[in-house]
Nucleic acid binder design. Structure first.
Length: 335
DNA sequence: GAGATTTGACCACT
DNA sequence: AGTGGTCAAATCTC
């Protein structure tokens, strides 16, 4: 828990620095970006994620996530496209793409082997595809705006493995050989596409061989609920005066709620996470027989530290608040 | 038998 | 016409 407190305090201090940085607008300090708004933002993100990783018992993942945050810095600062070709920055990176330059830019020149698995040994008397397909348009119940939504909300993540666990149930529905790419692109949709009309999809493609790097591009947000009560974060609701803040790990909710505060995190089917209750003296109680497997209880004081991470009113970048939130929401979800 | 995967065809877009 | 994304029948796996 001490680590959590340290990270929270550090985050608050960094947020304070950020406010000062924006106040005088002269941001370059000592040649590196440690004192710049950008650098501070990265540190804040890192601190925040570290905190959550500690809470989740995934501290060992810190390095990896930290790398991803660094990779994301260009997106936060609006300095570049946000989608690297796998050679800029770290080996593994995450990037936010608000400008639709994501998958189309995936044109690695480093492919040198075919990694297609061929477990099928079927004897083909195939009639696949031998059907008449109806003219495509908005299907029944399909929102005509889905295409725009999909195009405008994508998120890429580079990982050393193709089968990363992002807490969602995916179903592969296609594989396509991409022009100028040596590795095929795999297409996944949310398992709950039909039963819960979840529109989230992702594409996974190997973009580098040595070391192997798999680029996952997420489209849309999950509206499914794998675990109905799974991911609600109630903040000290026992004390009404504390202006209790409700944190939901549900994407649909987060989209609605995040304008109020940064108190909602993306995703998802969080499984068997312990309750973490942080009281004013920063102690944690964790137990298993709880009503909701991933409830987190934080005191108002602790929450204030998180609130201070995002001085939104003073922050300006090339991506709007929605995007910025979503980047982080997804990042947290995937952590 | 249910759910997941494979894979050729269909369709939209440029 | 070329390309990428998706569909859906066939097949596989548990």
């Amino acid at each position: 828990m001490e680590r959590v407190v340290e990270e929270v305090i550090q985050g608050r201090e960094l947020a304070s620095q950020l406010s000062k940085a924006f106040a005088n607008r002269s941001l370059v300090v000592n040649g590196d970006d440690g004192g710049s708004a950008e650098g501070i933002v990265n540190k804040i993100l890192g601190s925040f994620v570290n905190t959550l990783l500690i809470i989740n018992g995934k501290e060992s993942d810190q390095k990896f996530v930290s790398d991803q945050i660094q990779g994301n810095s260009s997106g936060v600062s609006g300095g570049s496209t946000g989608v690297s070709d796998g050679r800029g920055g770290g080996a593994y990176s995450s990037s936010w793409d608000a400008n639709h330059e994501h998958a189309a830019n995936i044109k690695s020149e480093d492919y040198n082997e075919e990694g297609i698995s061929c477990k099928s040994t079927s004897t083909f008397k195939d009639r696949r595809g031998s059907y008449k397909r109806r003219t495509r348009g908005p299907l029944d119940g399909e929102d005509p705006l889905d295409q725009d939504t999909k195009a405008s909300h994508s998120w890429t993540r580079d990982t050393p493995a193709s089968n990363i666990d992002d807490s969602h149930a995916w179903r592969k529905y296609g594989k396509k050989v991409i022009h100028n790419a040596k590795h095929p692109r795999n297409y996944f949709r949310c398992t709950h596409k039909y039963d819960q009309a979840c529109k989230a999809t992702k594409q996974v493609q190997q973009v580098q061989d040595h070391p192997p790097v798999f680029r996952t591009t997420y489209y849309g947000t999950h509206t499914c609920r794998d675990y109905p009560k799974a991911s609600e974060l109630v903040l000290d609701c026992t004390s009404p005066r504390d202006s209790s803040k409700y944190i939901s790990f549900d994407n649909a909710n987060c989209l609605e709620n995040k304008q109020e505060h940064f108190t909602s995190f993306a995703s998802s089917s969080v499984k068997e996470e312990p309750i973490v209750k942080a009281t004013s003296d920063h102690t944690v109680t964790s137990h298993n027989n709880h009503s909701s497997p991933s409830d987190y209880l934080l005191s108002h004081d602790d929450l204030m530290a998180f609130d201070s991470f995002w001085p939104m009113s003073e922050f300006s970048s090339s991506i709007d608040q929605y995007d910025r939130d979503d980047v982080f929401l997804k990042m947290i979800a995937e952590s």
